[in-house]
């Protein structure tokens, strides 16, 4: 029998970016931007824009990022479909929580950022086949980026 891989043990929690989505309101109005609230776990480090679709997440090189979704109504399906980001900054990988089909994405920040890097999240809502992409773009900002 081939040797099994040793489970890798992370040393710290990932920097989680959570999208709270009101799927019923987004589907009824066709507007995801007004029904999308982004949060991360780095507020005390300097992230801003909480509760808006334009969250600015403060990151450093080597940070492990994790994106997931919380629907406002647990009966309605919402999933993160894709993350469009400069692959020189981060290369998100789609994963599921073990034993489920609940999706999250993870990536490691590859370098310290000098300016803000915008990226795009897209979501699957309800039974609609085409993903929804908000107009507004969340950002990753570096450790020394000045906030206006």
């Amino acid at each position: 029998m081939p040797p099994r891989p040793k489970p890798t043990q992370p040393a710290a929690r990932p920097l989680t970016i959570t999208a709270v989505v009101d799927p019923v309101a987004a589907l009824a109005s066709g507007n995801l931007d007004e029904n999308l609230y982004l949060y991360d776990t780095n507020r005390t480090v300097g992230s801003t824009g909480f509760g808006t679709p334009e969250l600015r997440t403060r990151v450093r090189k080597g940070d492990v990022l994790l994106w997931n979704v919380i629907p406002l109504e647990c009966e309605t399906f919402v999933a993160l479909a894709d993350i469009d980001i400069d692959r020189r900054v981060a290369d998100p990988v789609r994963k599921v929580y073990p034993g489920t089909d609940i999706v999250f994405f993870t990536a490691t920040v590859k370098r310290d950022l000098t300016g803000p890097i915008g990226y795009r999240l897209s979501f699957l809502l309800g039974g609609v086949a085409e993903p929804f992409t908000p107009e507004a773009s969340p950002l990753l900002v570096g450790p020394d980026t000045k906030e206006s």
Binding site: V69, Y97, I102
Partner: peptide, 24 residues
């Protein structure tokens, strides 16, 4: 009212998720 934790496994995983993972 429903509570949720930021930065955790989301509440959309099945109800018995913790127990299932422990057993597995």
């Amino acid at each position: 009212w429903l509570p949720a934790a930021l930065g955790s496994v989301p509440p959309t995983v099945p109800r018995n998720y913790l127990a299932e993972q422990a057993r597995h």
